[in-house]
Design a protein around this nucleic acid. Structure first.
Lengths: 306, 306
DNA sequence: TGGAACACGTGACTTG
DNA sequence: CAAGTCACGTGTTCCA
Protein backbone atom coordinates (compact mmCIF):
# COMPACT_ATOMS: atom_id res chain seq x y z
CA UNK A 1 0.00 0.00 0.00
CA UNK A 2 1.41 3.30 -1.02
CA UNK A 3 -0.09 5.83 1.27
CA UNK A 4 0.15 5.40 4.97
CA UNK A 5 -2.25 7.95 6.34
CA UNK A 6 -5.57 9.43 5.49
CA UNK A 7 -4.99 12.21 3.07
CA UNK A 8 -8.28 13.34 1.68
CA UNK A 9 -9.65 14.82 4.76
CA UNK A 10 -11.91 17.06 2.76
CA UNK A 11 -13.79 14.13 1.33
CA UNK A 12 -15.44 13.49 4.63
CA UNK A 13 -19.04 12.17 4.67
CA UNK A 14 -20.42 15.65 4.45
CA UNK A 15 -18.36 17.34 1.78
CA UNK A 16 -20.20 20.59 2.14
CA UNK A 17 -19.29 20.78 5.76
CA UNK A 18 -15.77 22.00 5.37
CA UNK A 19 -16.74 24.07 2.45
CA UNK A 20 -19.22 25.92 4.52
CA UNK A 21 -16.46 26.70 6.89
CA UNK A 22 -14.68 28.37 4.07
CA UNK A 23 -17.62 30.03 2.44
CA UNK A 24 -19.24 31.34 5.53
CA UNK A 25 -20.01 35.01 5.13
CA UNK A 26 -21.88 36.15 8.17
CA UNK A 27 -23.12 33.09 10.02
CA UNK A 28 -21.15 31.93 13.03
CA UNK A 29 -19.66 35.35 12.92
CA UNK A 30 -18.43 35.18 16.45
CA UNK A 31 -16.78 31.85 16.09
CA UNK A 32 -13.26 32.85 15.35
CA UNK A 33 -13.66 35.98 17.33
CA UNK A 34 -13.91 33.80 20.38
CA UNK A 35 -11.13 31.70 19.00
CA UNK A 36 -9.09 34.81 19.03
CA UNK A 37 -9.26 34.93 22.76
CA UNK A 38 -7.18 31.83 22.97
CA UNK A 39 -4.34 33.44 21.17
CA UNK A 40 -1.63 35.15 23.09
CA UNK A 41 0.81 37.88 22.19
CA UNK A 42 -1.58 40.03 20.20
CA UNK A 43 0.54 41.16 17.33
CA UNK A 44 -0.82 41.88 13.90
CA UNK A 45 -3.28 39.19 14.62
CA UNK A 46 -4.90 41.87 16.63
CA UNK A 47 -4.98 43.96 13.52
CA UNK A 48 -6.75 41.45 11.46
CA UNK A 49 -9.10 40.66 14.22
CA UNK A 50 -10.17 44.19 14.78
CA UNK A 51 -10.21 44.82 11.11
CA UNK A 52 -12.36 41.94 10.12
CA UNK A 53 -14.44 42.18 13.16
CA UNK A 54 -15.56 45.56 12.01
CA UNK A 55 -16.41 44.16 8.62
CA UNK A 56 -18.54 41.06 8.53
CA UNK A 57 -17.51 40.47 4.95
CA UNK A 58 -13.90 41.43 5.18
CA UNK A 59 -13.44 42.19 1.54
CA UNK A 60 -12.75 45.51 -0.09
CA UNK A 61 -13.00 45.06 -3.80
CA UNK A 62 -16.34 44.53 -5.56
CA UNK A 63 -16.29 40.76 -5.51
CA UNK A 64 -13.13 39.21 -4.23
CA UNK A 65 -12.47 35.51 -4.09
CA UNK A 66 -14.05 33.94 -1.03
CA UNK A 67 -10.90 32.13 0.03
CA UNK A 68 -9.56 35.17 1.77
CA UNK A 69 -12.27 35.10 4.33
CA UNK A 70 -11.47 31.49 4.85
CA UNK A 71 -7.85 32.19 5.47
CA UNK A 72 -8.60 35.01 7.77
CA UNK A 73 -11.16 33.21 9.79
CA UNK A 74 -9.82 29.76 10.13
CA UNK A 75 -6.30 30.58 11.06
CA UNK A 76 -4.41 32.61 13.53
CA UNK A 77 -0.99 34.10 13.29
CA UNK A 78 2.21 33.76 15.24
CA UNK A 79 1.54 30.32 16.56
CA UNK A 80 4.85 29.56 15.05
CA UNK A 81 6.28 30.68 18.34
CA UNK A 82 4.12 28.47 20.46
CA UNK A 83 4.70 25.59 18.15
CA UNK A 84 1.02 24.76 18.05
CA UNK A 85 -0.07 23.42 14.75
CA UNK A 86 -3.15 24.63 13.12
CA UNK A 87 -4.34 21.51 11.38
CA UNK A 88 -3.06 18.85 13.67
CA UNK A 89 -5.75 16.23 13.38
CA UNK A 90 -8.00 17.05 10.53
CA UNK A 91 -8.80 13.66 8.97
CA UNK A 92 -10.59 12.45 12.06
CA UNK A 93 -13.75 14.20 10.95
CA UNK A 94 -15.50 11.24 9.35
CA UNK A 95 -12.77 8.71 9.01
CA UNK A 96 -14.29 5.90 6.97
CA UNK A 97 -13.75 6.49 3.28
CA UNK A 98 -10.08 5.80 3.29
CA UNK A 99 -9.83 5.02 -0.43
CA UNK A 100 -11.45 8.21 -1.55
CA UNK A 101 -8.77 8.74 -4.12
CA UNK A 102 -10.40 6.27 -6.42
CA UNK A 103 -13.29 8.31 -7.67
CA UNK A 104 -10.78 11.07 -8.14
CA UNK A 105 -11.65 14.05 -10.24
CA UNK A 106 -15.36 13.63 -10.26
CA UNK A 107 -15.81 13.95 -6.55
CA UNK A 108 -17.15 17.46 -6.83
CA UNK A 109 -17.13 18.13 -3.13
CA UNK A 110 -14.30 19.22 -0.97
CA UNK A 111 -12.30 22.37 -1.20
CA UNK A 112 -11.20 24.24 -4.22
CA UNK A 113 -8.37 22.33 -5.76
CA UNK A 114 -8.73 18.83 -4.41
CA UNK A 115 -6.53 16.85 -6.73
CA UNK A 116 -6.17 13.13 -6.19
CA UNK A 117 -2.75 12.91 -7.82
CA UNK A 118 -0.45 10.01 -7.07
CA UNK A 119 -0.96 9.85 -3.35
CA UNK A 120 1.36 8.50 -0.73
CA UNK A 121 4.53 10.54 -0.28
CA UNK A 122 3.64 13.62 1.68
CA UNK A 123 1.10 12.88 4.41
CA UNK A 124 3.12 14.78 6.97
CA UNK A 125 4.34 17.45 4.65
CA UNK A 126 0.70 17.99 3.85
CA UNK A 127 -0.07 19.63 7.14
CA UNK A 128 3.08 21.63 7.36
CA UNK A 129 2.67 22.82 3.85
CA UNK A 130 -0.88 23.82 4.52
CA UNK A 131 0.21 25.80 7.53
CA UNK A 132 3.01 27.34 5.59
CA UNK A 133 0.59 28.55 2.95
CA UNK A 134 -1.58 30.04 5.64
CA UNK A 135 1.29 31.84 7.28
CA UNK A 136 2.29 33.24 3.94
CA UNK A 137 -1.16 34.47 3.13
CA UNK A 138 -1.62 35.87 6.57
CA UNK A 139 1.62 37.77 6.31
CA UNK A 140 0.53 39.08 2.97
CA UNK A 141 -2.65 40.35 4.49
CA UNK A 142 -0.73 41.88 7.33
CA UNK A 143 1.23 43.81 4.76
CA UNK A 144 -1.94 44.75 3.01
CA UNK A 145 -3.25 46.38 6.12
CA UNK A 146 -0.40 48.83 6.09
CA UNK A 147 -0.98 50.01 2.59
CA UNK A 148 -3.65 52.66 2.35
CA UNK A 149 -4.78 52.32 -1.22
CA UNK A 150 -5.32 48.81 -2.44
CA UNK A 151 -6.53 48.52 -5.97
CA UNK A 152 -7.49 44.89 -5.99
CA UNK A 153 -7.44 41.97 -3.65
CA UNK A 154 -5.14 40.01 -5.85
CA UNK A 155 -2.12 38.52 -4.26
CA UNK A 156 0.03 40.21 -6.81
CA UNK A 157 -1.81 43.49 -6.70
CA UNK A 158 -1.18 43.68 -3.01
CA UNK A 159 2.51 43.39 -3.65
CA UNK A 160 2.36 45.93 -6.44
CA UNK A 161 0.49 48.40 -4.33
CA UNK A 162 2.85 47.90 -1.45
CA UNK A 163 5.80 48.47 -3.72
CA UNK A 164 4.39 51.62 -5.20
CA UNK A 165 3.40 52.86 -1.81
CA UNK A 166 6.87 52.32 -0.46
CA UNK A 167 8.36 54.15 -3.38
CA UNK A 168 5.97 56.98 -2.84
CA UNK A 169 6.87 57.12 0.79
CA UNK A 170 10.53 57.31 0.04
CA UNK A 171 9.96 60.27 -2.18
CA UNK A 172 7.73 61.89 0.35
CA UNK A 173 10.30 61.53 3.04
CA UNK A 174 12.95 62.91 0.80
CA UNK A 175 10.98 66.04 0.06
CA UNK A 176 9.89 66.29 3.64
CA UNK A 177 13.43 66.41 4.79
CA UNK A 178 14.33 68.91 2.19
CA UNK A 179 11.74 71.24 3.62
CA UNK A 180 12.87 70.39 7.04
CA UNK A 181 16.44 71.47 6.57
CA UNK A 182 16.09 73.99 9.35
CA UNK A 183 15.67 71.35 12.00
CA UNK A 184 19.10 69.87 12.47
CA UNK A 185 18.11 67.13 14.86
CA UNK A 186 16.10 65.14 12.38
CA UNK A 187 18.54 65.26 9.52
CA UNK A 188 19.96 61.95 10.54
CA UNK A 189 16.67 60.31 9.73
CA UNK A 190 16.72 60.65 6.03
CA UNK A 191 19.94 58.92 5.36
CA UNK A 192 18.79 55.65 6.77
CA UNK A 193 15.11 55.90 6.12
CA UNK A 194 15.11 56.09 2.38
CA UNK A 195 17.01 53.22 0.95
CA UNK A 196 15.97 53.81 -2.59
CA UNK A 197 17.01 57.42 -2.67
CA UNK A 198 20.62 57.02 -1.82
CA UNK A 199 20.77 54.02 0.42
CA UNK A 200 21.30 50.39 -0.24
CA UNK A 201 19.47 49.69 -3.41
CA UNK A 202 21.06 52.62 -5.11
CA UNK A 203 24.61 51.49 -5.03
CA UNK A 204 23.65 47.89 -5.33
CA UNK A 205 22.35 48.08 -8.81
CA UNK A 206 24.37 51.01 -9.97
CA UNK A 207 26.31 49.80 -12.97
CA UNK A 208 28.68 52.74 -12.98
CA UNK A 209 30.35 52.10 -9.67
CA UNK A 210 33.15 49.64 -9.85
CA UNK A 211 36.36 48.62 -8.26
CA UNK A 212 35.64 49.37 -4.67
CA UNK A 213 37.94 46.59 -3.54
CA UNK A 214 41.49 46.83 -4.68
CA UNK A 215 42.89 43.73 -3.13
CA UNK A 216 41.93 40.73 -1.11
CA UNK A 217 44.67 38.96 0.74
CA UNK A 218 44.04 35.72 2.56
CA UNK A 219 46.37 33.83 4.77
CA UNK A 220 45.68 30.42 6.20
CA UNK A 221 46.96 30.24 9.73
CA UNK A 222 45.70 26.76 10.37
CA UNK A 223 42.98 24.58 8.95
CA UNK A 224 40.30 26.49 10.78
CA UNK A 225 41.66 30.00 11.05
CA UNK A 226 42.21 32.48 8.28
CA UNK A 227 43.16 36.12 8.11
CA UNK A 228 41.38 38.15 5.49
CA UNK A 229 42.76 41.51 4.47
CA UNK A 230 40.69 43.70 2.22
CA UNK A 231 41.97 46.93 0.75
CA UNK A 232 39.09 49.04 -0.39
CA UNK A 233 38.24 52.51 -1.53
CA UNK A 234 37.46 55.03 1.11
CA UNK A 235 33.90 55.69 0.12
CA UNK A 236 30.49 55.77 1.62
CA UNK A 237 28.95 52.49 2.63
CA UNK A 238 31.73 50.38 1.25
CA UNK A 239 32.97 49.40 4.65
CA UNK A 240 29.69 48.16 5.97
CA UNK A 241 28.89 46.32 2.78
CA UNK A 242 32.15 44.46 3.01
CA UNK A 243 31.28 43.57 6.56
CA UNK A 244 27.94 42.31 5.46
CA UNK A 245 29.49 40.26 2.73
CA UNK A 246 31.91 38.67 5.13
CA UNK A 247 29.18 37.96 7.61
CA UNK A 248 26.99 36.49 4.93
CA UNK A 249 29.45 33.68 4.44
CA UNK A 250 28.41 32.33 7.79
CA UNK A 251 31.84 32.07 9.32
CA UNK A 252 32.78 33.23 12.75
CA UNK A 253 34.49 36.59 12.53
CA UNK A 254 36.56 37.85 15.41
CA UNK A 255 38.92 40.76 15.76
CA UNK A 256 38.18 42.94 12.83
CA UNK A 257 40.33 46.01 12.38
CA UNK A 258 39.63 48.73 9.89
CA UNK A 259 41.94 51.64 9.41
CA UNK A 260 43.11 53.92 6.62
CA UNK A 261 46.30 53.16 4.77
CA UNK A 262 46.46 56.38 2.84
CA UNK A 263 44.19 59.16 1.83
CA UNK A 264 42.02 57.06 -0.43
CA UNK A 265 42.30 53.54 0.83
CA UNK A 266 41.26 51.58 3.82
CA UNK A 267 42.48 48.26 5.07
CA UNK A 268 40.20 45.81 6.80
CA UNK A 269 41.74 42.86 8.56
CA UNK A 270 39.61 40.08 9.97
CA UNK A 271 40.22 36.78 11.61
CA UNK A 272 37.65 34.29 10.55
CA UNK A 273 37.12 30.83 11.93
CA UNK A 274 35.69 28.15 9.74
CA UNK A 275 33.90 25.29 11.37
CA UNK A 276 34.37 22.18 9.33
CA UNK A 277 34.96 22.19 5.62
CA UNK A 278 38.50 20.94 6.08
CA UNK A 279 39.68 21.45 2.57
CA UNK A 280 38.88 25.13 2.36
CA UNK A 281 41.77 26.76 0.59
CA UNK A 282 42.68 30.40 0.39
CA UNK A 283 41.55 30.52 -3.20
CA UNK A 284 38.14 29.08 -2.60
CA UNK A 285 37.63 31.33 0.37
CA UNK A 286 38.62 34.32 -1.69
CA UNK A 287 36.27 33.25 -4.39
CA UNK A 288 33.46 33.11 -1.87
CA UNK A 289 34.31 36.53 -0.59
CA UNK A 290 34.44 38.03 -4.04
CA UNK A 291 31.08 36.58 -4.86
CA UNK A 292 29.54 37.68 -1.61
CA UNK A 293 30.91 41.18 -2.05
CA UNK A 294 29.40 41.30 -5.49
CA UNK A 295 26.05 40.51 -4.03
CA UNK A 296 26.37 43.54 -1.84
CA UNK A 297 27.34 45.83 -4.65
CA UNK A 298 31.05 45.80 -4.06
CA UNK A 299 33.11 45.05 -7.11
CA UNK A 300 36.59 43.64 -6.82
CA UNK A 301 39.21 45.26 -8.96
CA UNK A 302 40.88 42.20 -10.36
CA UNK A 303 38.86 39.06 -10.30
CA UNK A 304 41.50 36.74 -11.57
CA UNK A 305 44.38 37.74 -9.42
CA UNK A 306 45.43 35.76 -6.43
CA UNK B 1 -7.15 9.88 -24.56
CA UNK B 2 -7.34 12.25 -21.72
CA UNK B 3 -4.64 14.77 -22.27
CA UNK B 4 -4.45 16.67 -25.49
CA UNK B 5 -1.11 18.35 -25.36
CA UNK B 6 2.40 17.55 -24.27
CA UNK B 7 2.64 18.34 -20.62
CA UNK B 8 5.93 17.05 -19.30
CA UNK B 9 8.16 19.38 -21.12
CA UNK B 10 10.88 18.83 -18.57
CA UNK B 11 11.17 15.21 -19.52
CA UNK B 12 12.70 16.22 -22.81
CA UNK B 13 15.65 14.20 -24.12
CA UNK B 14 18.09 16.38 -22.27
CA UNK B 15 16.52 16.95 -18.87
CA UNK B 16 19.39 19.11 -17.75
CA UNK B 17 18.69 21.54 -20.52
CA UNK B 18 15.92 23.42 -18.89
CA UNK B 19 17.61 23.14 -15.58
CA UNK B 20 20.66 24.87 -16.95
CA UNK B 21 18.34 27.60 -18.07
CA UNK B 22 17.41 28.01 -14.48
CA UNK B 23 20.83 27.68 -13.04
CA UNK B 24 22.64 29.92 -15.46
CA UNK B 25 24.67 32.49 -13.66
CA UNK B 26 26.45 34.73 -16.12
CA UNK B 27 25.89 33.54 -19.66
CA UNK B 28 23.39 35.36 -21.85
CA UNK B 29 23.67 38.19 -19.42
CA UNK B 30 22.45 40.80 -21.84
CA UNK B 31 19.58 38.84 -23.22
CA UNK B 32 16.68 40.15 -21.32
CA UNK B 33 18.32 43.47 -20.91
CA UNK B 34 17.49 44.02 -24.55
CA UNK B 35 14.12 42.51 -23.92
CA UNK B 36 13.60 45.19 -21.43
CA UNK B 37 13.51 47.82 -24.11
CA UNK B 38 10.13 46.52 -25.19
CA UNK B 39 8.61 47.26 -21.88
CA UNK B 40 6.70 50.45 -21.35
CA UNK B 41 5.83 52.54 -18.34
CA UNK B 42 9.02 52.08 -16.41
CA UNK B 43 7.91 51.89 -12.85
CA UNK B 44 9.34 49.34 -10.48
CA UNK B 45 10.28 47.28 -13.44
CA UNK B 46 13.03 49.78 -14.02
CA UNK B 47 14.42 49.05 -10.63
CA UNK B 48 14.78 45.38 -11.10
CA UNK B 49 16.14 45.79 -14.55
CA UNK B 50 18.97 48.09 -13.68
CA UNK B 51 19.64 46.06 -10.62
CA UNK B 52 20.15 42.81 -12.34
CA UNK B 53 22.04 44.35 -15.15
CA UNK B 54 24.74 45.37 -12.78
CA UNK B 55 25.05 41.95 -11.27
CA UNK B 56 25.34 38.87 -13.37
CA UNK B 57 24.43 36.68 -10.43
CA UNK B 58 21.73 38.66 -8.68
CA UNK B 59 21.69 36.81 -5.41
CA UNK B 60 22.09 38.33 -2.01
CA UNK B 61 22.02 35.76 0.68
CA UNK B 62 24.78 33.21 1.17
CA UNK B 63 23.17 30.40 -0.68
CA UNK B 64 19.71 31.13 -1.91
CA UNK B 65 17.61 28.64 -3.78
CA UNK B 66 18.56 28.57 -7.43
CA UNK B 67 15.03 29.24 -8.53
CA UNK B 68 15.38 32.87 -7.69
CA UNK B 69 18.04 33.43 -10.27
CA UNK B 70 15.86 31.67 -12.71
CA UNK B 71 12.95 33.88 -12.00
CA UNK B 72 15.02 36.98 -12.13
CA UNK B 73 16.85 36.26 -15.30
CA UNK B 74 14.39 34.47 -17.46
CA UNK B 75 11.39 36.67 -17.00
CA UNK B 76 10.37 40.23 -17.19
CA UNK B 77 7.74 42.07 -15.34
CA UNK B 78 4.55 43.61 -16.56
CA UNK B 79 4.53 41.88 -19.87
CA UNK B 80 0.98 41.19 -18.99
CA UNK B 81 0.32 44.43 -20.80
CA UNK B 82 1.93 43.38 -24.01
CA UNK B 83 0.23 40.04 -23.85
CA UNK B 84 3.45 38.21 -24.60
CA UNK B 85 3.66 34.91 -22.85
CA UNK B 86 6.82 33.76 -21.26
CA UNK B 87 6.57 30.04 -21.84
CA UNK B 88 4.59 29.95 -25.03
CA UNK B 89 6.08 26.88 -26.73
CA UNK B 90 8.08 25.01 -24.22
CA UNK B 91 7.23 21.36 -25.00
CA UNK B 92 8.79 21.56 -28.46
CA UNK B 93 12.19 20.73 -27.02
CA UNK B 94 12.22 17.01 -27.78
CA UNK B 95 8.62 16.13 -28.35
CA UNK B 96 8.60 12.35 -28.53
CA UNK B 97 7.92 10.86 -25.12
CA UNK B 98 4.28 11.67 -25.07
CA UNK B 99 3.32 9.03 -22.50
CA UNK B 100 5.81 10.18 -19.93
CA UNK B 101 3.24 9.97 -17.19
CA UNK B 102 3.59 6.22 -17.10
CA UNK B 103 6.90 5.93 -15.38
CA UNK B 104 5.60 8.56 -13.05
CA UNK B 105 7.30 9.27 -9.79
CA UNK B 106 10.65 7.78 -10.60
CA UNK B 107 11.51 10.25 -13.32
CA UNK B 108 14.13 11.97 -11.24
CA UNK B 109 15.08 14.59 -13.80
CA UNK B 110 13.48 17.90 -14.44
CA UNK B 111 12.85 20.73 -12.09
CA UNK B 112 12.28 20.80 -8.41
CA UNK B 113 8.83 19.40 -7.84
CA UNK B 114 8.00 17.66 -11.07
CA UNK B 115 5.02 15.57 -10.08
CA UNK B 116 3.40 13.37 -12.66
CA UNK B 117 0.00 13.40 -10.99
CA UNK B 118 -3.09 12.46 -12.95
CA UNK B 119 -2.39 14.37 -16.12
CA UNK B 120 -4.79 15.76 -18.61
CA UNK B 121 -6.93 18.60 -17.37
CA UNK B 122 -4.77 21.71 -17.36
CA UNK B 123 -2.46 21.73 -20.33
CA UNK B 124 -3.21 25.34 -21.10
CA UNK B 125 -3.61 26.49 -17.60
CA UNK B 126 -0.19 25.04 -17.05
CA UNK B 127 1.58 27.81 -18.88
CA UNK B 128 -0.53 30.60 -17.54
CA UNK B 129 -0.15 29.30 -14.05
CA UNK B 130 3.58 29.08 -14.45
CA UNK B 131 3.72 32.65 -15.65
CA UNK B 132 1.49 33.73 -12.84
CA UNK B 133 3.85 32.21 -10.30
CA UNK B 134 6.73 34.00 -11.92
CA UNK B 135 4.98 37.32 -11.85
CA UNK B 136 4.20 36.83 -8.22
CA UNK B 137 7.75 35.99 -7.31
CA UNK B 138 9.10 38.81 -9.39
CA UNK B 139 6.83 41.25 -7.66
CA UNK B 140 7.93 39.92 -4.33
CA UNK B 141 11.53 40.54 -5.24
CA UNK B 142 10.68 44.00 -6.44
CA UNK B 143 9.29 44.67 -3.02
CA UNK B 144 12.36 43.20 -1.44
CA UNK B 145 14.54 45.76 -3.16
CA UNK B 146 12.79 48.56 -1.36
CA UNK B 147 13.33 47.24 2.12
CA UNK B 148 16.71 48.11 3.59
CA UNK B 149 17.16 45.35 6.10
CA UNK B 150 16.20 41.91 4.92
CA UNK B 151 16.82 39.19 7.42
CA UNK B 152 16.38 36.17 5.21
CA UNK B 153 15.53 35.35 1.68
CA UNK B 154 12.42 33.51 2.66
CA UNK B 155 9.27 34.43 0.88
CA UNK B 156 7.62 35.00 4.19
CA UNK B 157 10.54 36.78 5.74
CA UNK B 158 10.50 39.27 2.93
CA UNK B 159 6.92 40.05 3.73
CA UNK B 160 7.66 40.25 7.43
CA UNK B 161 10.56 42.59 6.92
CA UNK B 162 8.55 44.74 4.57
CA UNK B 163 5.76 44.90 7.11
CA UNK B 164 8.05 45.86 9.93
CA UNK B 165 9.81 48.40 7.80
CA UNK B 166 6.55 49.97 6.79
CA UNK B 167 5.45 50.14 10.38
CA UNK B 168 8.71 51.77 11.31
CA UNK B 169 8.27 54.29 8.57
CA UNK B 170 4.81 55.14 9.72
CA UNK B 171 6.11 55.87 13.15
CA UNK B 172 8.91 57.95 11.74
CA UNK B 173 6.52 59.98 9.68
CA UNK B 174 4.32 60.48 12.64
CA UNK B 175 7.12 61.84 14.77
CA UNK B 176 8.46 63.82 11.89
CA UNK B 177 5.20 65.57 11.42
CA UNK B 178 4.90 66.20 15.08
CA UNK B 179 8.08 68.17 14.95
CA UNK B 180 7.00 69.75 11.75
CA UNK B 181 3.75 71.15 13.04
CA UNK B 182 4.48 74.51 11.51
CA UNK B 183 4.28 73.32 7.94
CA UNK B 184 0.64 72.94 7.13
CA UNK B 185 1.13 71.72 3.61
CA UNK B 186 2.52 68.36 4.58
CA UNK B 187 -0.02 67.51 7.19
CA UNK B 188 -2.44 66.47 4.54
CA UNK B 189 0.00 63.88 3.42
CA UNK B 190 0.03 61.81 6.47
CA UNK B 191 -3.68 61.38 6.57
CA UNK B 192 -3.48 59.17 3.57
CA UNK B 193 0.04 58.02 4.13
CA UNK B 194 -0.45 56.29 7.40
CA UNK B 195 -3.67 54.37 7.24
CA UNK B 196 -3.29 52.72 10.59
CA UNK B 197 -1.82 55.56 12.51
CA UNK B 198 -3.28 55.37 15.95
CA UNK B 199 -5.26 52.19 15.99
CA UNK B 200 -3.33 49.21 14.82
CA UNK B 201 0.24 49.98 14.08
CA UNK B 202 1.13 50.87 17.58
CA UNK B 203 1.06 47.52 19.25
CA UNK B 204 2.18 45.62 16.23
CA UNK B 205 4.69 42.89 16.65
CA UNK B 206 8.39 43.13 16.75
CA UNK B 207 9.27 39.87 18.42
CA UNK B 208 12.11 39.03 16.10
CA UNK B 209 14.51 41.79 16.96
CA UNK B 210 15.50 42.24 20.54
CA UNK B 211 18.25 43.93 22.46
CA UNK B 212 21.21 43.38 20.28
CA UNK B 213 23.13 46.35 21.65
CA UNK B 214 23.91 46.32 25.33
CA UNK B 215 25.76 49.58 25.68
CA UNK B 216 26.86 52.58 23.74
CA UNK B 217 29.70 54.60 25.10
CA UNK B 218 30.76 57.87 23.54
CA UNK B 219 33.72 60.00 24.36
CA UNK B 220 34.40 63.39 22.92
CA UNK B 221 38.10 63.77 22.27
CA UNK B 222 37.83 67.19 20.73
CA UNK B 223 35.11 69.15 19.00
CA UNK B 224 35.47 67.09 15.85
CA UNK B 225 36.57 63.72 17.03
CA UNK B 226 34.61 61.17 18.98
CA UNK B 227 35.14 57.61 20.03
CA UNK B 228 32.14 55.36 19.86
CA UNK B 229 32.15 52.07 21.70
CA UNK B 230 29.33 49.66 21.11
CA UNK B 231 28.88 46.48 23.08
CA UNK B 232 26.62 44.14 21.21
CA UNK B 233 25.45 40.60 21.17
CA UNK B 234 27.50 38.11 19.28
CA UNK B 235 24.94 37.20 16.70
CA UNK B 236 24.56 37.01 13.01
CA UNK B 237 24.38 40.23 11.06
CA UNK B 238 24.51 42.42 14.12
CA UNK B 239 28.01 43.59 13.47
CA UNK B 240 27.45 44.66 9.90
CA UNK B 241 24.19 46.31 10.73
CA UNK B 242 25.87 48.39 13.37
CA UNK B 243 28.46 49.36 10.85
CA UNK B 244 25.78 50.35 8.42
CA UNK B 245 24.03 52.37 11.04
CA UNK B 246 27.19 54.23 11.89
CA UNK B 247 27.98 54.86 8.27
CA UNK B 248 24.48 56.05 7.60
CA UNK B 249 25.05 59.01 9.85
CA UNK B 250 27.37 60.43 7.27
CA UNK B 251 30.36 60.93 9.47
CA UNK B 252 33.85 59.94 8.64
CA UNK B 253 34.75 56.71 10.37
CA UNK B 254 38.33 55.70 10.78
CA UNK B 255 40.04 53.03 12.77
CA UNK B 256 37.28 50.65 13.68
CA UNK B 257 38.16 47.72 15.87
CA UNK B 258 35.84 44.87 16.59
CA UNK B 259 36.73 42.10 18.95
CA UNK B 260 35.01 39.83 21.40
CA UNK B 261 34.92 40.69 25.05
CA UNK B 262 33.54 37.42 26.26
CA UNK B 263 31.72 34.46 24.92
CA UNK B 264 28.56 36.32 24.10
CA UNK B 265 29.55 39.90 23.57
CA UNK B 266 31.54 41.91 21.11
CA UNK B 267 32.98 45.37 21.43
CA UNK B 268 33.22 47.71 18.50
CA UNK B 269 35.30 50.82 18.86
CA UNK B 270 35.29 53.50 16.22
CA UNK B 271 36.81 56.90 15.80
CA UNK B 272 34.45 59.15 13.98
CA UNK B 273 35.16 62.63 12.68
CA UNK B 274 32.38 65.14 12.43
CA UNK B 275 32.71 67.88 9.93
CA UNK B 276 30.84 70.89 11.14
CA UNK B 277 28.02 70.83 13.61
CA UNK B 278 30.16 72.30 16.35
CA UNK B 279 27.76 71.79 19.15
CA UNK B 280 27.35 68.07 18.74
CA UNK B 281 27.33 66.58 22.18
CA UNK B 282 27.85 63.02 23.20
CA UNK B 283 24.20 62.70 24.04
CA UNK B 284 22.90 63.89 20.73
CA UNK B 285 25.36 61.71 18.89
CA UNK B 286 24.28 58.75 20.89
CA UNK B 287 20.70 59.55 20.18
CA UNK B 288 21.44 59.56 16.49
CA UNK B 289 23.23 56.26 16.71
CA UNK B 290 20.42 54.63 18.62
CA UNK B 291 17.92 55.80 16.09
CA UNK B 292 20.01 54.77 13.15
CA UNK B 293 20.57 51.33 14.65
CA UNK B 294 16.85 50.95 15.08
CA UNK B 295 16.37 51.55 11.41
CA UNK B 296 18.63 48.65 10.68
CA UNK B 297 16.83 46.32 13.02
CA UNK B 298 19.19 46.66 15.95
CA UNK B 299 17.56 47.46 19.26
CA UNK B 300 19.47 49.10 22.06
CA UNK B 301 19.00 47.54 25.42
CA UNK B 302 18.55 50.63 27.53
CA UNK B 303 17.31 53.64 25.68
CA UNK B 304 17.40 56.07 28.52
CA UNK B 305 20.82 55.42 29.90
CA UNK B 306 23.75 57.59 29.05
C1' DT C 1 17.26 12.55 9.34
C1' DG C 2 13.43 15.24 9.77
C1' DG C 3 11.74 19.78 9.06
C1' DA C 4 11.25 23.84 6.28
C1' DA C 5 10.84 26.08 1.98
C1' DC C 6 9.78 25.92 -2.74
C1' DA C 7 8.06 25.04 -7.50
C1' DC C 8 5.18 22.24 -9.68
C1' DG C 9 0.77 20.85 -12.18
C1' DT C 10 -4.06 20.46 -11.47
C1' DG C 11 -9.13 21.12 -10.34
C1' DA C 12 -12.29 24.47 -8.72
C1' DC C 13 -13.97 28.80 -9.22
C1' DT C 14 -14.83 33.68 -10.72
C1' DT C 15 -15.10 37.22 -14.21
C1' DG C 16 -14.87 39.33 -18.53
C1' DC D 1 -16.14 29.81 -23.07
C1' DA D 2 -11.57 31.74 -22.17
C1' DA D 3 -8.57 33.89 -19.24
C1' DG D 4 -7.17 34.46 -14.77
C1' DT D 5 -6.57 33.40 -9.81
C1' DC D 6 -6.40 30.42 -5.98
C1' DA D 7 -5.58 26.46 -2.80
C1' DC D 8 -4.31 22.05 -2.93
C1' DG D 9 -1.05 17.97 -2.26
C1' DT D 10 3.23 16.35 -3.87
C1' DG D 11 8.36 15.64 -4.85
C1' DT D 12 12.63 17.81 -4.37
C1' DT D 13 16.22 20.34 -2.20
C1' DC D 14 18.62 22.30 1.52
C1' DC D 15 20.02 22.78 6.18
C1' DA D 16 20.51 22.19 11.11
Amino acid sequence: QRHTCQTWYDLSPTPAHLRSLFMESDNNGGFWASDLAFADDGAQRHQSSSFFHGHPSPIFSPMPPPEYSAILDSLEMDWAENGMELWPEEPQGGGDNGDAEQNGEESGGGKRGAVPAAGGGGCKNLLTERNRRMRLNQQLLALRLLVPCISKMDKRSILIDATEYLQGIHKKIETMEKEMSAGASITCLNSNLSPSSEGVSQDVHEPTISHNIFEIDIEKLNDRLFTVKVVFKRAKRVQAQIQRALESLGFDISNTMIHPTDQHMMLSTSFIHVKKQKHLTEDSLKKQIVEAALNYGIVVDNDGQI
